[in-house]
Amino acid sequence: MLRKCLAIAALGLALAGGPALAAGSQKEPRTVEWSFNGPFGKFDRAQLQRGFKVYREVCAACHSMDLMSFRNLGQKGGPFYDPKYPNPNDNPDVKTIAKDFETSEIDQETGDIVKRPATPADRFPNPYPNEAAARAGNGGALPPDFSTLSKARMGGADYIYSLLSGYSTPPAGLEVPSGQYYNPYMLGDVSAFWKGKGHAPPGGFIAMPPQLAADKVTFDDDTKSTIDQQARDVAAFLTWASEPKMEERKAFGVGAMIYLLILAGLLYMSYKRIWRNVAH
């Protein structure tokens, strides 16, 4: 009992420390009932495919995903996983997707850099050759890499979804600097730009204009393509990309917990039996 109390106290301490640090003025992200929530959660394959399409057609123009290879899309747990192709490099869907991208390599004959269609083993190509080019193309702001985005933001998938679908017209009295956009979920502080009455509105400025629009992406599975749906799907896809082994981890964890519970029960019974004749 005492042990438990201490553990809880220690964790309370830890948790009190953690979220407290997001002490900005931004709105709390809206929570979504994700299919991957909870210890038994799994990714929704169709949602991951839709999310990938949103990424590919909208986000990928500016945002890199340096740690992702095309083969990842077809690996176990991935959006295009097919049990017929345990080696994702053989997966025809993945091959088709990769072929549509161009990647550069060095011609062994001439030493020149040549372009060729990508293969499943290739990484997602970066839309910019370097950081300076990325900044130059985006008004000085650097579009963050998406490989670990969902782990790198307080609120994870909820935050990405809320930000993308949460752009609103700036309240009267807020002077939005040129090249910036107001978003109530963005980390930051707009009080220096607030000329209205009362408290400054929540949120901050973001250099990315609203990207999603109804029917901007056509989903292959006839899901209605609203801003909310696109934001949800791409947030799910980015969460998968940040934690591609989440399903494996949770499934393993359920087994581990059952094992440990049985072990603890057996040890408790042994303990009672061994100590039964000792007054203590």
Partner: peptide, 19 residues
């Protein structure tokens, strides 16, 4: 055996975080 039981409980908490 007593430490073993306590370790099993501790590992349950550990595993809850890891997984």
């Amino acid at each position: 055996v007593k430490d073993g039981f306590a370790i099993a409980l501790f590992m349950l908490m550990f595993a809850a975080f890891v997984f």
